[in-house]
């Protein structure tokens, strides 16, 4: 049984530590906010210019001046602060954010990440993804293990245009979790979803990784 989106997000939430400043990407990464352990102090950054993101507003309390990087309406907390996009990316680029959780199209066994562009298809832009992977201390990628046609997304080298080189520290898919000690080390298999065998994982992965 592959892990669901929520189960992937819950596993990514295990990366959180008390006092962390965290940036969550759009999609499964956003769900990580639902799994912050009770009592843990985690400050969520929204790269358009806010620290201390609160939950979505109740109906009728939406504020057009208060949105997250996915342009969703959000709320503020007593601890929130606002700042310009230049200050925001100063935080990101300057290494002040502890953890970024991002989606991906491909991850290379060398830690390369591709998540913004498919040549020949509509190009929407990289937004803040390149800045995040270049500046945030630890980068965790969450994604489906294979693409819709069944081909591997964790592969020897990314074939799509890169978002960053050697930037991924941990990869959590619906089938397995891979991690590496540092950015000079290869990925190692940490955990598999229930019912997934080592053989099955091998057939769905072209990247090389160390056994558990």
């Amino acid at each position: 049984m592959a892990w669901s989106r929520d189960e992937i997000a819950a596993r990514a939430a295990a990366e959180l530590r008390d006092g962390y400043y965290v940036n969550l990407g759009i999609g499964i990464p956003t769900l990580v906010a639902n799994f912050i352990p009770a009592g843990m102090r985690v400050v969520l950054q929204s790269e358009n210019g806010m620290l201390g993101m609160g939950p979505f507003p109740f109906e009728g309390e939406e504020d057009p001046d208060l949105i997250n990087a996915g342009k969703q309406t959000i709320t503020e907390l007593p601890s929130s602060s606002y700042f310009s996009s230049a200050d925001s990316f100063g935080m990101i680029r300057g290494g002040h954010i502890d953890l970024s959780v991002l989606g991906a199209m491909e991850v290379g066994e060398n830690g390369d990440l591709a998540n913004w562009m498919v040549p020949g298809k509509v190009v929407k832009g990289m937004g803040g993804a390149m800045d995040l992977v270049a500046g945030v201390k630890r980068v965790v990628v969450v994604m489906e293990h294979c693409s819709r046609d069944g081909s591997a997304k964790f592969k020897p080298r990314c074939e799509l245009p890169l978002t960053g080189t050697n930037v991924v520290d941990k990869l959590i898919t619906d089938l397995a979790i891979f991690s590496r000690a540092d950015r000079h080390s290869p990925f190692q298999l940490l955990e598999m979803a229930p019912g997934v065998s080592l053989d099955e994982l091998r057939t769905r992965t072209t990247a090389r990784y160390l056994p558990p």
Partner: peptide, 8 residues
């Protein structure tokens, strides 16, 4: 431009 690069 990457968003942070654009801002900077």
């Amino acid at each position: 431009n990457p968003q942070g690069t654009l801002a900077e």
